[in-house]
């Protein structure tokens, strides 16, 4: 079973090499999608041992994830793991993510920050926002309430599932979109606990409370766009 990690990266020159090196022991290969960075993200990712594909212009995390997923499929991946470039996602959780896929129990596995493993350094404001996002996802997007983490970007899927999930949101709304597509399809899915480390750097670059409104707007527009 060939496992390939997909890592979207934008202006991550300072961290991407370390992230790639920490992920590679748990997978058979890593695809870093340099999303139009103006720094040496692509070079550093290649130095870490990743296959690098490059967006000539910045298209957003969702777009980069899809590019990486398609790249991984072309490289013959049986299982694809989506993981952030900023080192927030602990690669030690990868075996937990892919275990239900390798036994054939599931097609898609979502990492959750709310299933027992305490996220390290998560601010209270983020916790409150995610709780609100969970309710929003349930009522406005149609994601089942039993999904505990509405915005986890840490997930794994089999190759057939990756081909079936036609996510089109280029920017931040892709998390909710993927959850909706998977939970409304015939794909078998599950959440597993994952460990996430927040640092001041990752919080500075990560989503802000007002991004919630932007995500809601993107989802609304997406509902009317072909």
């Amino acid at each position: 079973m060939k496992v390939i990690a997909v890592i979207p990266a934008y202006h991550e020159a300072g961290r991407i090499e370390e992230t790639v090196r920490s992920v590679l022991p748990f997978v058979d290969g890593a695809v870093v999608v340099d999303d139009g960075s103006g720094d040496s993200t692509a070079l550093n990712a290649a130095a870490g041992g990743a296959t690098v594909v490059r967006h000539r212009v910045n298209r957003g995390q969702g777009a980069a994830l899809r590019t990486g997923t398609e790249g991984a499929l072309r490289m013959g991946a049986d299982v694809i793991v989506h993981i952030d470039a900023d080192g927030q996602h602990d690669p030690m959780s990868i075996p937990n993510l892919i275990a239900p896929l390798s036994t054939g129990e599931c097609d898609v596995v979502f990492g959750s920050r709310f299933l027992g493993k305490e996220a390290i350094g998560m601010p209270t404001s983020r916790r409150v926002l995610l709780s609100a996002a969970r309710t929003f996802n349930a009522f406005a997007v149609g994601v089942p309430r039993r999904v505990t983490d509405p915005q986890s970007g840490y997930r794994a899927m089999t190759a057939p599932a990756a081909r079936a999930i036609d996510f089109r949101h280029d920017r931040m709304a892709h998390c909710s979109e993927i959850l909706r597509l998977v939970t409304r399809s015939g794909l078998r899915w599950r959440e597993v606990p994952v460990c996430v480390h927040y640092s001041s750097e990752s919080l500075r670059k990560g989503q802000k409370p007002w991004d919630a409104a932007r995500i809601a707007w993107q989802l609304l527009l997406g509902a009317f766009t072909n």
Binding site: R56, V57, R59, T67, G71, R168, D170, L221
Partner: peptide, 30 residues
Amino acid sequence: VFKLFILHESLERKLTDLVRRDALRDVKPP
């Protein structure tokens, strides 16, 4: 205005498809 936003989003997606095709040009099966 909403219709214009939708048109803009549609163009953005087309641009992403182009950028993606270019990015994956050299990725070959093993």
